[in-house]
Design a protein around this nucleic acid. Sequence first.
DNA 1: GATGAATGAGGGTTCATTCAT
DNA 2: TATGAATGAACCCTCATTCAT
Lengths: 215, 215, 215, 215
Amino acid sequence: MAQIATHSHLGRPVNEEARALRREQILAGARVCFLRKGFHAASTAEISAEAKVSVANLYQYFPTKDDLVRALIDEELAGDLELIRIVEEAPSFRQGLEITTRMVTANREVAHDSRLRLEILAEAARNPAIAAVVKAADDQLVREIGAVIARYQAKGELRADFAPEVAARIIVSLFDGMTGRFAFGLSETEDLIVAADQFIVQALAPAAVSPSPTP
Amino acid sequence: MAQIATHSHLGRPVNEEARALRREQILAGARVCFLRKGFHAASTAEISAEAKVSVANLYQYFPTKDDLVRALIDEELAGDLELIRIVEEAPSFRQGLEITTRMVTANREVAHDSRLRLEILAEAARNPAIAAVVKAADDQLVREIGAVIARYQAKGELRADFAPEVAARIIVSLFDGMTGRFAFGLSETEDLIVAADQFIVQALAPAAVSPSPTP
Amino acid sequence: MAQIATHSHLGRPVNEEARALRREQILAGARVCFLRKGFHAASTAEISAEAKVSVANLYQYFPTKDDLVRALIDEELAGDLELIRIVEEAPSFRQGLEITTRMVTANREVAHDSRLRLEILAEAARNPAIAAVVKAADDQLVREIGAVIARYQAKGELRADFAPEVAARIIVSLFDGMTGRFAFGLSETEDLIVAADQFIVQALAPAAVSPSPTP
Amino acid sequence: MAQIATHSHLGRPVNEEARALRREQILAGARVCFLRKGFHAASTAEISAEAKVSVANLYQYFPTKDDLVRALIDEELAGDLELIRIVEEAPSFRQGLEITTRMVTANREVAHDSRLRLEILAEAARNPAIAAVVKAADDQLVREIGAVIARYQAKGELRADFAPEVAARIIVSLFDGMTGRFAFGLSETEDLIVAADQFIVQALAPAAVSPSPTP
DNA sequence: GATGAATGAGGGTTCATTCAT
DNA sequence: TATGAATGAACCCTCATTCAT
């Protein structure tokens, strides 16, 4: 695999590399524009201007505006799976959540990402092809988070009376919902995320020895 | 009678009722189209065709496509406040949630509504005017739900170590997030909502008498 | 003819009078709008708003926007013929011109009238029907001014080596040309008109005994 | 040669010449349509059809219909300044006028040009931006003609009791006025222009030695 | 007579996309 | 490869005009 870098100044590989760079350059421009105006309102002209590339050139990398959208969505969804690793390797559920939180919060502009996610969801709501992609990513996310929960349930760290995947879905929903709020400043970002962590931990905390009213 | 129409002989009188009907008719068509294609992709021609109205006529009721969007958003957001009444008058927090759940679930097509909400959020992320409207509605919703929570906290029915408005925001986020999932069939509607209710109740349940205060 | 006034509160005549009033009311509104935007850009909606009349009502008086234009043009051209009387009854050609000048200058906003004339000419350049009307009015104007000139030529007050109608055409052209300038403030109104009078008088002054270079 | 095209390998080079040709092609189509219908009534579709160009292509050369109008006006006004040179280099004022006359008359369809001028004036009467352009061209024209007149006055070829610029304004007005008549055949073109020349010459002729200075 | 309500036919402009160099 | 040049199909909106009351 170091191959690619090695051949960097030979015949084809250079082009491959150059192509990949251009692709990213275009995608970056597209991200900016889609963020600013949404998938539909952003024009290919605008995007190629932002990417400092000619329109015709753009079409050599993405034969359709839809392809551009799809590529950006793929890129975006791929980022999610990173988070899972983090939670997976955390010493406790609570700490996993906290780390995730810090990642998401610290990460560059959360609001920007939020807007894009919103746009993606909206697009998925109409375009079945997009919906399929989103669903696939979501399924994986839910499955893996569910697995993590199941593990912690087994350890007794989390209450066991919640189907792991259901809990996962609720957690993902909660984060998605907050994302929507951040997208246009409905709430203070960090505060809400921290509180949400606490909320989740409490909801899933092992049932205290039950009120135990009797002797 | 009683001089309602003072325009004795000044021409055809305004028919407020017919106008209101037309307005709804158009809004209904718009809803269908916006649902199908989104705010941007749905054309005024398409909308007026769906509403069985001429384009020019549509423009006599909504001077701008944006006005149409805004009207639909207003209508949609107004629906939220109904839910608050329900929770407010419930005998317990848990039952309030349950009733809400049943309302939302049983109510007409949840998915449809969900799509529209998604579209609204996405639009708000770009259009500051829309964002303001959404924010206003959201503020009210959060404030009122927060008040309800505060009341139940006072009664000891909910744990007191959560700022009411923060809890409210989390709950609203959670519902919004689920809404996004329903929008294109990411999850089974009813199951998830029921589980979410339980999740919320547990998160806010009064701290169990802590492990063992007994003798 | 006092008849009309006499019958003013009987059956038909009242209506006739009312109709005429409305007509003028609408024409006045039309004049304002046409002045502001030109014949094409001024909409019937705008005109009827300006005239404080419903659009449908406007159409009962002028079955077509073109009819409205035509009526306004007729009204405008009719004004020209008044000027002729003045010149006709003047004691000398020079004084006739001066009086005309004063009339035109003193008259209400010259610029406004100028704009309308311009609009009329431009319309005539495309619409043969309008062109015919304008041509008829112009012919009459030229003919009558030509007659006046011929009279003064006979008196020896003006040089005789100019065909009267040709001179008339030049004079009318000159005034039309100045009108165009006034229309949007190209020149100082009054100064130019006064100078033009002098210009005309000198051009038509009887040939001085010719330089008479020799004894 | 000589490195004119620095874009060695950056894609298809700009073909300035072809662009200029297209521009003229479009302007020519526009001129025809504007002549036929006027600035407002001529549609961009019509113009691009006349110019054998797609509408979208037209918009790549003129981003707005208004720009098209403006370009045509600029072109038209630029033609005026040619005339000045001619008068300037004439051996006498009279001959300068005659040459101008012949130019204007012989020149391509005078009537067409006249219509366009009319349209321009009418447009200027409403659109301040256009008015400014027209005024600038007119100022220059008047100033330069005024200078010519002043020169001939100094030579004693023209009477000195007329402010040069005022005389210039009158002359321009006269030509403008005739232009308006030609625009739709109100008068015979050539005859009137010739007579106007004589008219001007007489008006500006040096005061004859006054009736009788002889012994 | 006068107004409110409705509409078909465009009008200017933009866009995703293709062709040529 | 990468750019300039071109286009058909829409899109939002307006207008002159008619119909109903």
